[in-house]
Write a protein that binds this DNA or RNA. Structure first.
Length: 420
DNA sequence: TCTGGGGTCCTAGGACCC
DNA sequence: TCTGGGGTCCTAGGACCC
């Protein structure tokens, strides 16, 4: 059996852990630049605030209903996620961390010794007690079905007490007949539209289609999903693998028109990518730089361009990546536009130990030591303590984050104070 | 005025090989 | 009358996830 554990309204719940006064009240978390709503407490959902809603369109609702609004605090969410995952890992040797707030556990043979429902309730209580984060658990013979079970647990919290198990054919069919096809994991807007055109409305009807048709229309991906939903074990736990691409992209709070401003951003993004590469001990062989104007500003001329660069020698040096990213920027930058977003994406990643030398260029071995020193200093004394002169010279805030909460769990000066 | 960021996998088709 | 057969690799684009 597989269990899918999912944190309820994760980012909103993280904020609430340290603000218990917000329990029972609507809470939303906004994306970078305080742009869109990316997490909502149940109370906020009940107010009709949709996922991805532009914040400025909902300001009145926020105000009228006293909604607690937060800027995304990824440092906090990342740390809380680690805490939750480490607790979950104690309940099974086979774990797949699927996203920041979701985790699959494999319960092989566990049902011979434990009552799975009680076992799952114990997990829920421990995670809640040790971290303050509420979770839901779905258990079923396959991954796709555990997703379905989780959906049910979340939809009917009173009836299920946050745990639902699909352990019989009757329950499987009942669940699939209840689940709208667009809510199936792996069926997105395109697929569900095509299914609806064919008259398919529920997950169950999807599983009644012929293998040939599903494969023809939705490739092997769709077919695997169909089988998994039928209870045929198709999707297994996946091992934590190195990332195949690493990106740093941002929208700006204001629009930039000068090359120098973009150069600062792009070199900072390249350095951030380099840091992430070093953390996973990878080097990249290629990078892409893109810049674009604000597509929502129909009144302004639009421009969007990207360029890919193959590096002569694979690297994770901030200096090298920054140099090539700026080189790319020079080739695509055009005067006269208001730029709103830029990014650097590194790909064709290989392991640090497998760098292929280049006949015409030597690897500067000094970079490796320098990067090690920089990473060490920054991890000991705090982010960005050492950075390149080209980056962020005045330390200007480049993102709108007006409602940022403290880093309660990762910064000593932000630790919560308790008055007795 | 104000609209996020970071990933994965699969396929078709072109270019190339012998 | 009437143009072989069997491969690999790469890339762009599309779909999906959170």
């Amino acid at each position: 059996m597989f269990a899918l554990i999912d944190c309820n309204n994760f980012y909103a719940s993280c904020e609430r852990v340290f603000r218990p006064d917000l329990n029972g009240k609507p809470v939303v978390v906004l994306s970078n630049n305080d742009g869109c709503v990316i997490a909502r407490s149940n109370e906020a959902k009940a107010l009709g605030i949709p996922m991805g809603a532009p914040a400025f369109e909902y300001e009145k609702i926020f105000k009228d209903h006293n909604v607690a609004v937060f800027s995304a605090n990824y440092t906090l969410y990342g740390d809380m996620s680690n805490r939750v995952m480490s607790i979950l890992s104690e309940y099974s040797p086979e774990v797949e961390i699927y996203s920041i707030d979701e985790c699959f556990l494999k319960f092989d043979g566990l049902d011979r010794f434990f009552n799975l429902y009680n076992y799952a309730q114990e997990i829920r209580q421990r995670v809640k007690k040790w971290t303050g984060i509420p979770i839901s658990i779905g258990i079923a013979p396959t991954k796709a079905l555990s997703k379905v079970a989780n959906h049910i647990a979340k939809k009917f919290p009173e009836k299920t007490n946050g745990v639902y198990i699909i352990d019989s054919e009757e329950k499987r069919i009942k669940a699939l007949k209840w689940l709208p096809v667009e809510d199936v994991w792996g069926i997105g807007p395109r697929m569900s539209e095509r299914l609806k055109n064919k008259g398919i409305k529920t997950a169950y009807e999807f599983t009644q289609l012929s293998d040939e048709w599903v494969k023809k229309e939705f490739t092997i991906v769709g077919l695997r999903l169909k089988h998994d939903l039928q209870g045929i074990l198709t999707l297994d736990l996946e091992k934590q693998k190195d990332k195949k691409s690493i990106a740093t992209t941002r929208s700006f709070e204001t629009m930039y028109t000068s090359f120098d401003d973009l150069r600062e951003r792009v070199s900072t993004f390249a350095s951030l990518c380099a840091e992430k590469l070093r953390r996973q001990r990878s080097v990249c062989q290629s990078l892409m730089v893109f810049i674009r104007t604000n597509p929502h500003r129909k009144d302004l001329p639009q421009y969007s361009k990207s360029i890919e660069i193959n590096l002569p020698i694979a690297t994770n040096s901030s200096i090298e990546l920054s140099k090539f990213a700026i080189m790319g920027l020079k080739m695509i930058f055009k005067e006269g536009y208001h730029y709103k977003k830029a990014g650097v994406i590194t790909y064709n990643l290989i392991s640090e130990g497998c760098i292929q030398a280049n006949l015409f260029q030597e690897i500067d071995i000094r970079h490796k030591k320098l990067m090690e020193a920089i990473d060490k200093i920054n991890s000991t004394f705090g982010k960005n303590k050492v950075r390149f002169a080209i980056q962020d010279p005045k330390g200007i805030q480049k993102m709108k984050q007006e409602k940022l909460s403290p880093c309660y769990t990762t910064k000593l000066s932000d630790v919560i104070t308790v008055y007795v």
